[in-house]
Design a protein around this nucleic acid. Structure first.
Lengths: 248, 248
DNA sequence: AAAGATTCATGATAAATATCAAGCGATATA
DNA sequence: TATATCGCTTGATATTTATCATGAATCTTT
């Protein structure tokens, strides 16, 4: 299968210990000595321009990636040309687990804006797992988090009405920003309405109406992509999730 | 947190090499020598009666389980008493990944009928990963499969209409039985309508109507829980999934 | 700055699905 | 055997959401 990936200039070796995401990204769980062993194996930085693909369905799994800057959208396509956004991934997030079943990616990943990623080649990863028990642990935690996020998304799509889906999404995004040291009451949506509507399983028009509804209730205000949460409790009341408040 | 688990009589040590699921269950991917090391660590058999819980949300993750006989339903609950079925798990399936993020189960698992499971305590598992590279590999494959199943479920709930959801579900179940050597055109639904409707994100009445609709189209026939697929191509036409046909 | 394209919002209408209500048949219980 | 209960189906209706159509606002390109 032909791949569309073209890594725009691979950077130099990375240093997790000097990374500004070191409190967020997954190597955070490693001990100091483990980290120094680990760092030398995250051998490359991958740069993608907006709309460039990181991988496509059917591609062989070569590496796991951590987002350093920018954002990535993952999605699934059907035989009839429909698609379903699986997630919006931001700095500190890990990508590539969709390929573990059979070493082949089952989803597509595309840059939503210019994006920089750290690349951890799978061969290195397997060797490292041999010698770093902490890495195995941290990896399983990451996998567990991903599974929990999926569970939460299934609950959202399966049980909630459109207004509640949006409220739940906004709350998760809010928590996500808070964890990264940004404001949890004012932030930008990193994706267009079209993608968000698809992710939330509704028509774009419905999403628009739900934004309008939340605004009329004075729960949020939104201008283009800038969201301000005016009434956090109100938003929480609209969402009935068993809040662990992981990110979407 | 109080747990409702009461393991009804732990059995003796298991032998994967003599298990009738050895072609299906995950240790299948291990080499002969790895398997013998592995077997001794799957130290217990857990027996559950119908409706008994294997674990609940909030319980500490102690073990990973493989289903030997019977079936398990996993589900998530919301603060308002709603719930969402996450999956119906059958012999050969692995359970417990929902607890990896923070060593705490985030979902509930309950026996849909009298069920027997193999228990792999986490402590053993971590030690084994140290010495068995194949186990790490197989485990990551299992995790990858679980993630792929979730992706597929998200697609189903997010994009498909009720008829297509049901058609897709029946096809997956059919493949599942086929892989296990059973008929792929005639089989029993292991769950009541109520649970299936919840899993598929629709009202039980809607599920009934969709079954009726598929019957009228002569695509299936169904009596209580016994399904016969009359027109496999017809069913495939109703489902637009990019078929990897993993199980639901 | 003008023209075109894109993104988003909103109204009117149609379609899908949930809810409410009733009843049927199988199984369990007395 | 009679009775109650449970799981399921089916009909009538209400609600939610999608679709279609239009237009405004923003961004891009010339």
């Amino acid at each position: 299968m032909v791949t569309n990936i073209s890594h725009q200039g691979k950077g130099s070796s990375n240093s997790c210990s000097h990374c500004n995401l070191k409190k967020i990204c997954f190597p955070h769980g490693l001990s100091a000595s483990e980290l120094s062993t680990f760092e030398s194996s995250v051998d490359q930085t991958v740069k993608l321009q907006k709309k460039q693909k990181l991988y496509s369905r059917g591609d062989t799994l070569k590496s796991v990636y951590a987002i350093k800057a920018g954002s990535i959208k993952t999605y699934l396509s059907t035989s009839k040309g429909q698609s379903q956004v699986l997630g919006f991934h931001m700095p500190g997030d890990l990508l590539g687990f969709d390929g573990f079943a059979d070493d082949t990616h089952s989803s597509d990943a595309v840059a939503m804006e210019d994006t920089i990623l750290c690349e951890l080649p799978l061969a290195n990863f397997e060797n490292l797992c041999e010698v770093l028990p902490g890495l195995r642990k941290v990896m399983m935690q990451q996998v567990g988090s991903e599974i929990n996020r999926h569970h939460s998304l299934v609950l959202t799509l399966g049980q909630m009405q459109t207004e509640e889906r949006l409220a739940t999404f906004l709350l998760r995004l809010s928590c996500y920003y808070q964890k990264r040291g940004f404001s949890c009451v004012q932030f930008n949506l990193p994706m267009p309405r079209h993608d968000l509507a698809n992710f939330l399983g509704m028509a774009p028009e419905t999403l628009s109406r739900m934004f309008a509804k939340l605004e009329k209730q004075q729960v949020i205000s939104i201008q283009r992509r800038e969201v301000t949460i005016l009434d956090m409790d109100g938003l929480l009341n609209l969402s009935h999730e068993m809040c662990t408040h992981d990110v979407a």
